[in-house]
């Protein structure tokens, strides 16, 4: 497995508030990592550090060039929390999706027919093709989430990062959504932030719990006991046949 990036002894935060302390993490191609943890524990901060939006106070994050990749090309497809954007901004669904090709295309050029076709195919795949010319202000939360997923994957990134994508997903779409992520995982690594521990353990391969520190579990099975051991105030919901295994306790 090729490494995508490696985080070593990294601390980061805002002003004098250190949100993340001495984090270590390696992400490889085709990983599927679920990040869980309490609100304010630093999940989103971790994503922003990986994206280069926040400079770490200490420690390093090193990216490794994988398959032949131009330097300008973006490695990461990012799906932010959708409450961050201005819904009255006059922009159409297709334009939002095409903005995911920004770094591939440089500053001047216009989009080719092929790229438009690719964007439209993605919209079809996610069942929102008929919305392509609508302004984003006219969409529901679930539809918007799908548009954002299209934007995140339109450039076929090496790594897809999703920040709380379940928040607005209706239950009808939820199953499809998980299937789509599974398919995507055949082509790219995925990091998904979620507060819904019960559901994500179904489909991720490994789990990282972020609560100021980071604990990495090379498995998708997690128990209430474990959560308690690093002060994760999260309720675990048991789904029918999920086997529960008690892992070794962390030595803190």
């Amino acid at each position: 497995m090729n490494k995508i990036f490696e985080i070593k002894d990294l601390s980061a935060g805002y002003g004098d508030d250190i949100v993340l302390r001495d984090i270590n993490l390696v992400v490889n191609d085709l990983d599927f990592i679920g990040i869980i943890g309490p609100n304010g524990g630093g999940k989103t901060t971790l994503l922003k550090v990986i994206l280069g939006l926040i400079k770490p106070y200490r420690g390093t994050i090193t990216f490794y060039n994988g398959r032949q990749q131009k330097k300008s090309e973006n490695t990461i497809g990012y799906l932010p929390q959708i409450n961050q954007i201005d819904l009255r901004f006059p922009i159409s669904v297709t334009d939002v999706v095409l903005s995911g090709l920004m770094s591939k295309e440089g500053l001047f050029s216009r989009y080719s027919g092929k790229q438009r076709k690719h964007a439209e195919d993605l919209l079809k795949q996610l069942g929102i093709f008929e919305l392509r010319n609508k302004p984003i202000g006219g969409l529901s939360g679930g539809q918007l989430q799908r548009v954002y997923l299209c934007r995140a994957i339109v450039s076929s990134p090496r790594l897809l990062m999703l920040d709380e994508p379940n928040t607005f997903v209706d239950s009808r779409f939820e199953n499809d959504f998980h299937k789509i992520l599974k398919d995507l995982n055949n082509k790219m690594a995925i990091i998904i932030v979620s507060h819904d521990v019960g559901t994500i353990t179904w489909y991720v391969k490994t789990i990282a719990c972020v609560n100021r520190n980071l604990h990495y579990h090379p498995t998708n099975i997690i128990t209430q006991k474990q959560l308690a051991s690093y002060n994760c105030p999260i309720q675990i919901i048991t789904h029918g046949d999920v086997p529960h295994t008690v892992l070794e306790k962390h030595k803190l």
């Binding site: 300008s72 973006n74 990012y78 932010p80 961050q84 920004m102």
Partner: peptide
């Protein structure tokens, strides 16, 4: 103009 932060993740100026 639409999404500054997202544009930053694409290394846009």
């Amino acid at each position: 103009a639409f999404d500054q932060e997202y544009a930053k993740t694409h290394k846009a100026p």
